[in-house]
Amino acid sequence: MIYFDNAATTKPYPQVLKTYTDVATRIWGNPSSLHSLGNTADKLLELSRKQISELINVNTDEIYFTSGGTESDNWLLKGTALEKEKFGKHIIVSAIEHPAIKESAHWLEKRGFNVDYAPVDKKGFVNVDKLAALIDDDTTVVSIMAVNNEVGSIQPLKEIAELLSDKPNITFHVDAVQAIGKVPVENYLLDRVDMASFSSHKFHGVRGVGLAYIKEGKKIEPLLSGGGQENNLRSTTENIAGIAATARALRLTLEDMSAKNQHLARMKEVIVNQLTTYDGVEIFSGTENFVPNIITFGIKGVRGEVLVHAFEEREIFISTTSACSSKAGSAASTLIAMNVRPEVATSAVRISLDEENSMAEVEQFLTVFNHLYDKFQKIR
């Protein structure tokens, strides 16, 4: 089996699973309980929070635990918009955001907020000048992802941060789910960034754990009411085993990041160079200012889901762009925003590599691709 769908979810590191099992077996107390089992769980919770904050260079009390990237995105966008509603009801998100942000923006629109969608260029990068033109006195939140999940474009966050440098009343949120381990932390957790979202299972952690970074002093409306956990901002009993496993996954992911990315870049280069030799193959993921693990391409006249299943029959697992919307069978929203024709966008598939993938797997993929390409050419 060859697994090339790591942007959808990564396989947990063995050490991470061991941490999860050990904690779930030995430390099962509720961290809100007053007895010794609860105190032990609470100490591990805060130790994990401290380790995560140190790894991404933020304050310990700026890290909050959620159930995943989707909840983090929902909370940070909706909660901030609702908290600042009395100051303005205008929000800006990019046209290529993950559905967790886009659907949250639609939710806010139904409740009277005004949402603008900052356009991108044909390569998938937010146009900062056009974003600037959307800002007005009513703007309270700007949300831009660090790395696009469909094509892998690294967004110009430094330029956007500079744009917002003299606008302290605007909260700048970054969806950093696809950035950890692929982009240096300092490139997306900039001084001007007020909030950020992360998801454990995207960096070899377990599912069901997310992180929300909220800069000290920034106010946000809770979306969950109950026991008052997470400083009264996110009520629900914390997933201690998952959180401890997440802390370990983050540490392992950030170790030797440069070497890992060089390996990914070499594999990506081999795949891209080979794909460019085929007529009718269009590649949507570049190399400059793109993460080294994502390659999105299409074969003219072949729908993406057909190619996905053809590879699956040979035990090679890729995906149609975003896993969160792939079953809908619609064109990739990012490609549509890039002004790719719908009939071309529906052909798109995504390879997303991991440091555990090998060049031998790349060669096997290319051999199978050559066979499938010939097969589809004959059918066409």
Score class of each variant (00 low, 15 high):
286 G>T: 08
263 H>C: 07
373 Y>P: 02
218 K>W: 05
374 D>V: 08
160 I>K: 03
22 D>F: 10
192 R>A: 06
76 L>K: 11
64 Y>W: 02
296 T>S: 15
329 G>M: 07
380 R>Q: 09
193 V>Q: 04
72 S>K: 10
51 Q>K: 14
148 N>V: 11
275 L>W: 05
90 H>M: 11
277 T>Y: 02
303 R>N: 04
264 L>Q: 07
301 G>N: 01
192 R>V: 05
337 A>N: 09
339 N>R: 15
265 A>I: 03
298 G>V: 02
26 R>D: 00
58 V>D: 00
288 E>K: 09
308 V>S: 07
47 L>A: 14
159 E>W: 08
171 T>K: 15
370 N>W: 01
304 G>Y: 11
160 I>W: 05
70 T>D: 01
230 E>A: 07
90 H>T: 12
237 T>H: 06
367 T>W: 04
372 L>Q: 12
113 F>Y: 12
327 K>N: 09
269 E>N: 05
238 E>T: 13
373 Y>M: 05
95 A>I: 02
180 I>H: 05
264 L>E: 06
261 N>F: 12
177 V>K: 07
360 A>F: 09
33 S>C: 05
103 E>T: 10
337 A>H: 10
205 G>Y: 03
318 I>P: 09
190 L>I: 12
132 A>I: 07
351 I>G: 13
33 S>P: 00
78 K>M: 12
154 I>P: 13
311 F>C: 01
262 Q>T: 07
1 M>T: 03
93 V>L: 06
86 K>H: 08
232 N>M: 06
293 N>T: 05
291 V>D: 11
10 T>A: 05
29 G>N: 08
372 L>V: 09
158 K>N: 09
139 T>L: 06
266 R>D: 07
308 V>R: 15
298 G>M: 02
223 L>H: 03
78 K>C: 08
303 R>F: 07
112 G>D: 02
288 E>W: 01
30 N>K: 13
62 E>C: 01
274 Q>C: 03
332 A>Y: 15
263 H>N: 13
64 Y>R: 06
199 S>M: 09
261 N>T: 08
324 C>D: 14
229 Q>I: 10
321 T>L: 15
21 T>R: 13
199 S>K: 08
126 V>A: 00
204 H>A: 03
157 L>R: 01
111 R>G: 00
113 F>H: 05
190 L>D: 07
285 S>T: 10
141 V>Y: 09
102 K>L: 13
69 G>D: 08
186 E>R: 13
81 A>T: 06
299 I>F: 05
281 V>G: 01
173 H>G: 03
203 F>M: 01
261 N>R: 12
232 N>L: 06
219 K>P: 00
